[in-house]
Design a protein around this nucleic acid. Sequence first.
DNA 1: GCGGCAACATTGACTAGACATTGTTCGGGC
DNA 2: GCCCGAACAATGTCTAGTCAATGTTGCCGC
Lengths: 264, 264
Amino acid sequence: MSETRNVDNFRATPLPAYQRIAAALRDRITSGELAGGERLPTEQELTEEWGVARQTVRNGIAVLVSEGLVVARRPLGHFVRQRENMLYRPQGESRDQPASPEMDRFCQQITEEGRKPSQTIDVSLIHAPPDIAQRLQVDPGTVVVARRRVRYINGEPVNINDSHFPFHLVKDSEIMSPADVARGTNQALADLGYPQDRAIDEIFTRMPTPEQIRRLGLGPGTPVAVHYVTGYIADGTPVRCTVNVLPSDQHVIVFERKFERTWS
Amino acid sequence: MSETRNVDNFRATPLPAYQRIAAALRDRITSGELAGGERLPTEQELTEEWGVARQTVRNGIAVLVSEGLVVARRPLGHFVRQRENMLYRPQGESRDQPASPEMDRFCQQITEEGRKPSQTIDVSLIHAPPDIAQRLQVDPGTVVVARRRVRYINGEPVNINDSHFPFHLVKDSEIMSPADVARGTNQALADLGYPQDRAIDEIFTRMPTPEQIRRLGLGPGTPVAVHYVTGYIADGTPVRCTVNVLPSDQHVIVFERKFERTWS
DNA sequence: GCGGCAACATTGACTAGACATTGTTCGGGC
DNA sequence: GCCCGAACAATGTCTAGTCAATGTTGCCGC
């Protein structure tokens, strides 16, 4: 096989073969020559085309898989991944921010064409994990109410949405029932005497934990965005901490900001 | 798009060895037994411990690397990655949103302890790529001003920040000079008669392109957040489109929202 | 026509090696 | 003491194979 290797230009150290294979395939994908959903050459074909061992080809493909560009569908082959973005609009939850014409434009671009949403809800009392405890300003291990949702579209899980409330605030309320709260839990909280005045949004991006991979049925090479929303009432007491986990290949997070005092 | 969904609550066949190795190491890391910066057992040691071939051990470690939990430092071994978050606060750019006490709390938690920031600025005229053109509502290929910044802390690149303006708006202005604009480009835009009234924020998370890996010196297993800000003046005309690229292992994106009409 | 079964193609997992590459360490020469 | 080079230890790359797992396809019997 060493003959075919001479084709390289003589650089200090040429890129290893598997990276050259990955780069060549990546180019064909990003250039559009291989479109979303299309099948890549089989490992066998690539082995012959490049004159390397099958394992080397597999290493190259593994690079693309970990970049989220390619998925395997055994035993059919490897396929270029389809990306299809879906809007995720944190501000939509508060129903009081009238969308501006520009916002509408953005929303229209990614329309939901007859997708069927559904969800599962599970309410339980848990000891607050550190991240939640810190945001709700309680001691870690304090009992809080966790309202865990997984949202589906056309049967596919797309979104984890876990809301946490201090137990004494929502005890015996509607929020404790594992059913949809039609008017929204924020309205329900307000009805209990805790109207939220403001919220802080934090967004992290990470590779998912195995637990998140399981709950969202994720493929490899898919990072997730973790979005914390901590809601406060007027006196600064936090009353809600929501954790949203979004597979990044399905969501765009969109905010709109108005500048109260304009630059003048 | 069901592409890859492993819904394996029950597994007839036991997990493959490399995944068991990965899981065992991951447990030791997340439990804190192996702390950030610590060295993993060598491949040789793991090979003997598990009684498998070296390649199998390597596959297991590769899983952790692609999850961003582990990095290799040849020829010393594999090390548990240190994560250190830094605040990224889009609203900070507008200097008119007084931070609430809660916001301050969040900022204080991640203090910058004597870090030395620096940046490079590069201004050029470019043909608008599709993503920018769409947001500035111009035809793709139209000439726009690109003000490209890379921000460094302690000499390490941490952030790409590319602002784009329609050429005719900023022609001959201070914005065209490749130097820092002390009062901020938004103020400069306002002084030119284009005060921004509102902005739309979009956040995507992706595995980085090779180009982004190069500019930010990223390691493997690091997703990036791509943050677009499109600024509009009162009549709805977009006057600015900024693209921020943030390595996710270094940033938390933080927003604060005030509810104009409170749930009552 | 139709249900079920077997062959098939393809990826997945793994082995047992070889040689390359590269920071580190340490000892010898000056 | 200091510099340089060699040995070293660890990961990086690659080969050539074996056997397993699994959707798909098409054939066969009914």
